[in-house]
Amino acid sequence: MTPTISTDALIVGAGPVGLFAVFELGLLDIKTHLVDILPKIGGQCAELYPEKPIYDIPGFPSVTGQGLIDNLLKQIEPFHPEFHLSEMVASVESIGSAEAPLFRVITDAGTVFETKTLVIAAGGGSFQPKKPPIPGIETYEEKSVFYAVRRMEDLRDRDVLIVGGGDSALDWTLNLQKVARRVTLMHRRDEFRAAPHSVEQMRALVAGDQMDLRIGQVTGLGGEGGRLSRAICRGNDGSEFEIVCDAMLPFFGLTMKLGPIADWGLALDENLVPVDTEKFETSTPGIFAIGDINTYPGKLKLILSGFHEGALAAQKVFRYINPDKRLTFQYTTSSSSLQKKLGVSGT
């Protein structure tokens, strides 16, 4: 059992908006923890378009997704935020009052937070594995169809079909080939995006008859009671064939889903979280939503809007945490106390 982490502010989502909220909260002396389902920092900027230039960040005529994230990380360095990556917030329970909010937040990895405020900066929701729309696939999920491998042992001595052509597909092919009875890799073409080294290893195993490679796509599944026995496939020439397998691992990349946020008791409007435009607070006092995840009249899904929203939400977060303190508005250009926090000396 890991001890409960107590914090003033917990940010859900380590994309650009969550990162800048660290800055705005930091200027107000509020320490932050961030949780993100991805194994890396940067959200969509890092996952979907790290090398694409963005042209509408004020002050940057052009900056790549990764470039923006790198700059934001540098900007928030003085505040030492703590990141909890590859974790998804599974549940949020209110254990305080409207005047003095307190939330118990538990992630799917078992990390427990007690936080006075919660800032949802989750963009399009959480990145989750894409499920190929094969008819009836749901009935096999968790028994025979897996979108991630939790324990390799579960696949020992099974006939495993892996579908995909990227690094996940190739890495698991090479790993599971050692424990499975037989591994078949299926991809829609005989070219792979995965690292060339992994592809070479895979081809060597195929040449040595230690695994199979089939070119085509899965169109149907056969089995009983959630136990898979075969995959029905179509080759690129239109021919149908079957692959005997009792486990299938499709690797079709990630998609964004609202995920557990829907169960946190917040009012929702078509998978978005309605907020006011003064504090960007949700229907639950102490829970804020900033960036692409929120909605209000006139909302624009721009990174710059999320920055603004984070700055305003931070003011209200401060008032919850310091109900008796006066909040003086200060500029980083002239305030010696802000400059001290940023670790820079004024001129």
Binding site: K130, P132, P133, G164, G165, G166, H187, R188, R189, E191, R193, Q217, T219, F252, G253
Partner: peptide, 9 residues
């Protein structure tokens, strides 16, 4: 082409 690997059918 690489991205089409993520599409279905």
């Amino acid at each position: 082409e690489d991205m089409l690997d993520f599409a279905y059918d």
